[in-house]
Design a protein around this nucleic acid. Structure first.
Lengths: 237, 237
DNA sequence: TCAGAAAAGATTGCATACGATTTCCACCAG
DNA sequence: CTGGTGGAAATCGTATGCAATCTTTTCTGA
């Protein structure tokens, strides 16, 4: 898969930062798996695709590199990240630490508008699961992550929200690489249960459910190292 | 305080990324309060000071902006962040959520080398407390943060480690802005106790002590809003 | 035929240039 | 004296050019 095969919507009104707009679109593409791990993102190509100079493209890639979605090597360029099993474990360890707390914080702040937003979100998630095909599957992974991001936004801590954005994005990459089967239907169920607990104001239960939910997601991964370290490194691209 | 009044050690062997080296030095200056919140960091000045082009200076400032230590405004430039009381609360809420977990993880991984490193660290911290004067005070705040960073590195999760780097740096800013008195001697004591628990392998106790420790740090802050919101916003720079 | 060296091509790192935007300040009308 | 106005200076956003580095291809000698 090459970045040149991608199509991106034109950048909207240049009022906002163009580099940021490019970062958002690239991030979506990575999280949606339209860009496979390891894909080279050359400054020139990105610039041409979005019709900006290398300067701006470079800034966008630098941002993605901070978020851990892109790995940059000096004098070699930027590549879609290819997280190792160890990195994958750390991503989920971080989520286990943070998300139960976010659930507790959110439970104390849910408004009826928030509940409505969650219901809309979960409905959409359900639709993608019902559908079949690779496109629906991508949308499903994305929607599943959006549930967690919505929760983080309700929790009302912008710092934790940003951390979660990074963790969810990296999780998508990890699931793409190491995912085994249909976490989805099971996961959707768990999302529903978490929402019920939140709606009932049962913070403890929401927190515990969240912890189990993360465990389930991680349990579906196959994080065994596939070959000896030497070969592994040699093939790592 | 102007950035031009600062002196910075020359950047070392250009093997590493120069922008990164500049970021590190600026971060130290901000955390040490040699650069006051609100100070303008113009690309040109930074570039001149470090003898690089604006391109590189800009990249360094962009990194700091991601970490929340610098706020950038379009067409206006970069300024040392000036966290609001609300931001301050969120920084500490995040730490309360993350650090007890880090303490638990670290407790299970402490080696004797780690213990030695902690002891060295705490000795140094003690020395700065014994000394008096503004320079020692700065070093003391820095050393206090380093304790938490050391703990994060022992915990062995590089993602959480990076989150902690950001949180500790932002905490230093917050303490500089809203700190009241001598958290230090008290804080040092608590660090010692935490280390004792870690050494004894008592993860639960280390975690609980950490939580209290963070509470104490935050309790020493004066986060009351000083004036009406209208004036406050007008004066916010 | 194949390993190794040399050259060609591509890509990044960085500096610089130029237009656009904002800030500052002198000036003037009310 | 206050408040608005115009232009100059400063600063930012972005494109582009050149040197350094890496990659690939080609050539040579065994």
């Amino acid at each position: 898969m090459n970045i040149a095969d991608q199509t991106f919507p034109a950048i909207d009104g240049a009022n906002e930062d163009r580099a940021q707009a490019i970062r958002d679109q690239l991030r979506d593409a990575i999280v949606d798996r339209r860009l496979a791990p390891g894909t080279k993102l050359s400054e020139g190509e990105v610039g041409t695709l979005f019709d900006v100079s290398r300067t701006v493209a470079r800034a966008a890639l630098q941002m993605l590199s901070f978020e851990g979605l892109v790995r940059t090597e000096r004098n070699r360029g930027a590549f879609v990240a290819n997280p190792s099993p160890e990195e994958a474990r750390q991503v989920f360890a971080s989520r286990r630490l943070i998300e139960p707390g976010i659930a507790i914080a959110a439970a104390g702040r849910m408004t009826s508008a928030d509940v409505a937003a969650f219901k809309t979100q979960l409905e959409e998630e359900g639709r993608f699961i019902a559908e079949r095909g690779p496109t629906a599957r991508r949308s499903e992974i994305k929607a599943s992550g959006d549930f967690h991001l919505l929760l983080a936004s309700v929790a009302g801590n912008v710092i934790l929200q940003r951390f979660m954005e990074e963790l969810v994005a990296r999780s998508s990459l990890v699931i793409a690489l190491y995912g085994r089967s249909g976490i989805s239907s099971c996961g959707h169920n768990e999302h529903v249960q978490i929402l019920e607990a939140l709606e009932a104001g049962n913070a403890e239960r929401a927190s515990a459910l969240m912890l189990h939910h993360i465990d389930h997601i991680e349990a579906d991964l196959d994080l065994r190292v596939r070959s000896g370290p030497a070969l592994r490194q040699a093939l790592e691209f």
